[in-house]
């Protein structure tokens, strides 16, 4: 059974002067427990696809089914809840909140659910130890290296125990050694049963995953 199902997705960005077709009639199925890489040159629409998959953006045409649920008709509140419970995000530039420390950053997704302070704190500590950052809980993002930041971001994605993690160039801002560390972490997470969809342009990293699909000019070519 497929956990993500994109049907005939088309996304057009419209500005006053130009109309850019980011995705054109894309179909894609991702199976539960899969680790999928999405590849393609810059501007080919792979990030757009990831955003649509993550319900961060709406397609102009087509259907997005996640975990068997159709998301097109969902209202803002439902979408938020759905994102919070089913999806986890990892970004190329980490997107940590600079004014919060590591622990608070990791706790963030739980703030939008019913949970107690104590249980939040404990869960955050647990996931931080999973990513090997127990000793940095009180630090602020500006005091961490890039690799550490991305590990915090992964911990944040994991804390809500989502079914799916969407990673947008998670190693893009890191050197190869750190990138490798991050990939090892993601593989561990995947082996524990979480579905991962990762956008990357690094062949060597993509090769380690179960399946690679390629995009060119808004179309899936493989």
């Amino acid at each position: 059974m497929s956990i993500i199902n994109l049907q005939n997705i088309t996304k057009i960005y419209q500005t006053k002067e130009v109309e850019t077709v980011a995705l054109e009639n894309v179909n894609l199925e991702v199976n539960e427990g899969e680790f999928l890489s999405v590849m393609g040159p810059s501007g080919c629409g792979k990030s757009t696809m990831l955003n649509i998959m993550g319900l961060l953006d709406l397609p102009n045409e087509g259907k997005v089914l996640i975990n068997g649920t159709e998301t097109n008709q969902m209202k803002d509140g439902q979408l938020a809840e759905f994102r919070n419970e089913t999806l986890g995000f990892i970004f190329q530039s980490f997107h940590l909140i600079n004014s919060l420390n590591v622990l608070d950053n990791v706790e963030l997704p739980l703030l939008y659910r019913k949970s107690t302070d104590k249980s939040r704190r404990e869960l955050a500590k647990e996931v931080l130890s999973k990513v090997g950052l127990s000793h940095r809980m009180k630090h602020f993002p500006s005091q961490l290296s890039g690799g550490q930041c991305q590990r915090v971001a992964i911990a944040r994605a994991l804390i809500g125990n989502p079914k799916i993690i969407l990673a947008d160039e998670p190693t893009g801002n890191l050197d190869s050694k750190m990138g490798e560390e991050i990939m090892n972490l993601l593989h561990t997470v995947n082996q524990a049963g979480t579905t991962i969809v990762m956008v990357t342009h690094d062949e060597s990293i993509a090769k380690e995953t179960q399946r690679i699909i390629r995009f060119f000019d808004g179309r899936r070519i493989q």
Partner: peptide
Amino acid sequence: RSEIGLRLALGSSRRK
């Protein structure tokens, strides 16, 4: 802006 975007991504609703 990006912080707000992130919060939305992590499951906050607009009203929140």
